[in-house]
């Protein structure tokens, strides 16, 4: 799609307190453009609860309900039921970080997904608790430094997008701050679907990942190009790779070595070659599962576009 087709209206206002080069605010800007005016955002404790600004001002120009950390899905469920009961049409959207999604918010998320509440849940995943100052989350990848994994995290991350597929909800998609047109398209699509929808966006964080602030897009793209992050859509039980991930699966693009991605980031600077090898193995296994088993046929057979 042409970037000029994306609306010029801004719903995330400038002069907010997001960090320089913030991947999350970059993604939120695009998400709000895709959602438009009739949107209510439910935001649990996360970086966004901070960068939206302090009372009596706000950087977000659609209605926002801030929620406690564990319960954004439940607050959104109540909000949607309430608006529906009064005949008010609205996109009720949760905008949560990986802490509020993968960890403390998982129970409420699972509950709302199982009930197939008519809400769109968007997880902006920066692979750690950035808001509290860079601590591990269960979305933190193997080997990454955080202030609570000083010699690197010993475990691989879990995958909540997969977990959401297991809930049998109508729509699951992954996206990256490196491909905002792809993100825009997925949010537009999700907006039209009824029931519980889940989109997870990889949103690099310069201070947390320890890379120079202007490289957010480059890092977010490399995550996909090296297979660390896989772009896909899961709709009505069918998984389909999208964008660069799809091109890689179709053999039209060569997957880059993950070292290129890791070397850009200070959080991986301590990794030994054995640890890098472990990450390569992880990528190969995960990729096999996604590209070959679940999405391979669809991905390869379908027409190619990036």
């Amino acid at each position: 799609m042409k970037l000029s087709e994306i609306p010029a209206e801004e719903y995330l206002l400038e002069g907010n307190s997001a960090c320089h080069g913030c991947g999350s605010s970059m993604a939120l800007r695009t998400v709000l453009k895709a959602l438009g005016k009739r949107t209510v955002l439910v935001v649990p404790a996360s970086c966004t609860s901070v960068y939206q600004g302090m009372y009596p001002g706000s950087a977000i120009a659609v209605p926002v309900v801030n929620s406690a950390f564990a319960c954004s899905s439940a607050v959104a469920s109540g909000l949607k039921a309430s608006l529906e009961h009064q005949g008010i049409d609205a996109n009720v959207v949760v905008w949560a970080g990986d802490g509020g999604t993968y960890d403390i918010g998982l129970q409420a998320l699972s509950g709302a997904a199982e009930r197939n509440e008519d809400i769109l849940y968007i997880c902006y995943n920066n692979e750690m608790y950035s808001n509290t100052g860079i601590q591990r989350s269960s979305a933190t990848p193997f080997g990454a430094w955080t202030t609570t994994t000083v010699s690197g995290k010993k475990e691989h991350r879990k995958d909540v997008a997969e977990l959401m597929m297991a809930h049998g909800i109508p729509y699951v998609a992954t996206a990256s701050a490196g491909y905002l047109d792809d993100l825009y398209r997925k949010v537009r699509k999700a907006k039209r679907i009824e029931g519980f929808r889940y989109i997870e966006i990889l949103t690099p964080c310069p201070p947390g990942w320890r890379y120079s602030m202007e490289r957010t897009v480059e890092v977010a793209k490399l995550a996909v190009e090296t297979g660390m992050w896989i772009l896909y859509e899961y709709e009505h039980g069918v998984l389909r790779l999208t964008g660069v991930s799809r091109a890689i699966a179709a053999g039209k693009k060569k997957m880059k070595d993950v070292q290129e991605y890791l070397l850009l980031q200070g959080r991986f600077s301590h990794l030994s070659s054995a640890e890098i090898q472990e990450i390569r193995k992880y990528i190969a296994e995960r990729w096999k599962k996604f590209a070959d088993v679940r999405g391979g046929e669809h991905a390869v057979a379908a027409e190619f576009f990036v």
Binding site: G53, V65, L83
Partner: peptide, 12 residues
């Protein structure tokens, strides 16, 4: 919830 006159509930 007012789309024409939005506000943010419960921010910092």
């Amino acid at each position: 919830v007012d789309f024409d006159n939005p506000s943010t509930h419960g921010n910092i």
